[in-house]
Write a protein that binds this DNA or RNA. Structure first.
Lengths: 325, 325
DNA sequence: GTCGCATGAGAAAACCTTTTCTCACTTGAC
DNA sequence: GTCAAGTGAGAAAAGGTTTTCTCATGCGAC
């Protein structure tokens, strides 16, 4: 302890924390010696007294990390300045495992919990509604009176379809995931609002093979073909692009294709690279982190669902130019 | 505190921990009441005394999570039974950020640190060699006298090439990543040992486009074409498969293609799905977790590099049958 | 010269456990 | 009936920090 090196015991604490009354030369001396011996206060002892552990828990059932990692990066980014560390707990839809992790986090006196997942319309398999620490939901369904952050899929879909319209496309089809996904219905709704009902919506699964097959279905139909495809995610878009190439249809000259998610590993490696919609998950994580911190510090936060706007990422699968700004 | 609900103070502790001397009826009563009021001991206070926080830190510079997430899953899996939680700290090759995270972890009295990365032959941008807590390296270069876990890329590559030989392929080319990668050289070495020097090794970058381009190069050369491609990772393999399909070369009938990494999102979505080499990163994480725990508990661990065997994942891009076993 | 007040610094309590020590009481043996 | 041994349970210290309280000293004012 610094006390040994310097002179006193509780004086050291006051010196280092710039609290209490004391001579400035004493304060400086203590600080200097503390720095010399590399003294760092024990966060456990501090937390025991202050009731703040400067630790939060991140609970997720997204084992792939597709959604969790960007969210985690945003949380960490926002909280590292505040000295907060993050426990990551990956539960794989296993209620018992989830409960174990939640209990462990509570035992360790986390200041709050952020729950995140891979679907906006599903709950984590554990009840977090009556904990004595604040809980914030990010990209997963929250409980009544909770704070929930989610992407604005409707706005994102509108962004995509409006972009296709703006570059002159008129026959825009929509190939997407299973209709029971809330975000699928929301995106399809926005699609209809902007593009009307001229072309069909093809519901399927979240896989490249479905994008491939959907293009086959569309091109087998008699009559005019679509001049644009708005796909429910980047994997579907990739499958669609591959299918179009195999049919000799040129992307983006003949058909524009737009994805959703901006999953770099898929979107950037597609030929041509995909124009897509980014859900700004890192920003979502950042806000979730700051919110749980605010709640932990007792600052009031309005409950409710916060929709964060998506952003259009223009690459080469649509043609057109990036918007200036 | 349970003391209030029950009768005494230190007796409660002994009752719940099955230590000390006391009447069995007292012990049972305390336990029952503790369970009723949902009492859970404060891990901070316990850690303060026992010098064990049941917390470890996972430091990574792999922002994509391609390698970190499976490792993390293994660690968590191994340690959750021991009541250990994991701080995840993503540092993006930023030494200052890394130091901040390490300091934060040490302040929080982690029992140990696992350092992990995305390259076997690179260090994390922070020195962990003189900490007062044990450090274990996983999938990143460790320091002298440290414990390091890594995949056995040589064995993995041998597994792949031997498989190609076994199913009857003779002209096996190797398309891989940048030669400065240690694992690239190791895999290429094993490739040469098994396949000889009949076909070239093409060094490039870790991208689909490179796999595509490499196939173009190989097929533009005069003379007989390869009947198998051993690719340095799944992305390259995917690019190669796509290029072969565009050339009208059938996979796996005409050419077998094998990847490396078993990155499901790439390997399983390729058409046909890729036979590939899995580095067993989850098992690697599990062992790293158990090792850091052993070190934290003072159990002796032999320093050195531990190579974990890879496993062949047989899908459809090679033909042949899965080995029984 | 005394009183009051400001100032600097240390003592002590509190946070919540675990562990060791002490004490009172019971029981069995002689 | 006394003594030793054994048994059950509480007291106290320790762990590292922060915060409040107390105390001693020195100074200015009257």
């Amino acid at each position: 302890m610094a006390a040994a090196a310097a002179v006193s015991i509780s004086t050291a604490s006051k010196a280092l924390n710039d609290t209490g009354r004391m001579g400035s030369e004493t304060r400086e001396r203590v600080k200097r010696i503390a720095a010399e011996i590399g003294y760092r206060p024990n966060a456990l002892a501090r937390g025991l007294l202050s009731k703040r552990s400067f630790t939060i828990g991140l609970l997720t059932n997204d084992t792939y990390g597709r959604f969790t990692l960007p969210v985690m990066a945003g949380i960490s980014d926002a909280l590292v300045d505040h000295g907060v560390s993050v426990f990551l707990c990956a539960i794989e839809d296993d209620p018992a495992l989830a409960q174990i992790h939640v209990d462990a986090m509570l035992d360790k006196q986390v200041d709050g919990i952020i729950a995140t997942g891979k679907r906006l319309d599903r709950r984590l398999p554990v009840d977090l509604s009556n904990l004595h620490v604040p809980v914030v939901y990010a990209f997963t369904e929250g409980t009544q009176n909770s704070v929930t952050f989610r992407s604005d899929d409707e706005q994102g879909a509108r962004l995509a379809v409006e972009w296709l319209v703006k570059i002159g496309r008129r026959r825009i089809a929509h190939i997407t995931g299973p209709e029971e996904f809330f975000s699928v219905r929301e995106r399809a709704g926005a699609y209809h609002e902007v593009a009307g009902h001229r072309e069909p919506v093809l519901y399927g699964v979240w896989a490249e093979s479905w994008g491939h097959e959907a293009v086959d279905q569309l091109w087998k139909r008699p009559g005019e073909k679509p001049d644009a495809l708005f796909c429910g995610n980047d994997q579907i878009a990739r499958g669609a692009v591959d299918a179009l190439r195999e049919r000799g249809v040129k992307v983006p000259q003949d058909v524009s294709v737009i994805g959703f998610d901006n999953w770099e590993i898929v979107a950037a490696q597609t030929r041509p690279p995909l124009t897509t919609v980014d859900m700004e998950l890192k920003e979502l994580g950042r806000q979730a982190g700051l919110t749980v911190l605010a709640l932990a510090e007792g600052r009031p936060v309005e409950p409710g669902v916060r929709k964060l706007p998506c952003r259009l990422i223009v690459r080469q699968s649509c043609g057109g130019k990036a918007p200036q700004g």
